[in-house]
Amino acid sequence: MRRQWTTTAGIVITALLTLFLLVPVLLSVYAGLTVNYARGISAGFTLDWVKQVWALYSDTVWRSLVVALMTLALTLLIGVPGAYALVRRGGRFARAVEEIVTLPVAVPGLALALAMILTYGGAGSFRQSTLFVVVGHVLFTLPFMMRSVIAVLDTIDWRTLDEGAASLGSPAWRRFLDVILPNVRPGIVAGSLTVLTLSIGEFNLTWMMHTPMTKTLPVGLADAYASMRLEIASAYTLVFLVMVIPLLIGVQLVAGLTEKRTAS
């Protein structure tokens, strides 16, 4: 009886929490689909707002995707070998580097953006390009990739795996590709999901860094909330969800596929 009582309580609490998280999102989606939010369902539903959002802001959707994927590519290229190098080296130096790399997370995004503008403001074409935003996102997301990979490295006996491969004649770069990478895959997948979601949703850094030509989705969203009617802003949220959910599922699928490929 006692266990049933706790089970019921668990279900109720979980349901309440889920509702707490989901209701605002669902309301947003609902608002984006109503003809007039103030009048509610009686006014009927429409896709007009979504169409308007697409007409006004489709470039921000694509830009956000491009920025997120470029950010992911760079954090993978820098973060994964970097994490392994740090763990291999160990000691005080490695810890200091890890702290420095983590700093951009602690520093307010606005301050980081300001520092970036102070440093590269003079480099006109770079400052104006989407790449500038990408660099900002890499600075911000890199520690999440590295920490995720380091966490997995800490749980596997990478040194023995590396020595085992070395004893079979494998050169250092091949040991990294053949033995280390496949065994830290869970950390890479988790890190990738974090980096993608952070990059796509990133606002305060991007808001400071963007130019009218390099607006990302969240910056456009702020723009819409500030200057358009509620239904358009809500429809924008709907577009955001439609974009981000398949993207995350896609990453999971790709991770699953590469696992099967290397296993065969």
Binding site: D157, T160, G164, A165, A166, S167, L168, G169, P182, A263
Partner: peptide
């Protein structure tokens, strides 16, 4: 070690969990 051509059997085996038994044997 990678140029010394020595066979090594480790206490923890150091087998590669991402490979099958035969892939482990074939790796070298």
């Amino acid at each position: 070690i990678e140029k010394r051509n020595v066979g090594m059997v480790f206490q923890s085996y150091a087998l590669f969990p991402n490979m099958t038994v035969s892939e482990n044997v074939a790796y070298g």
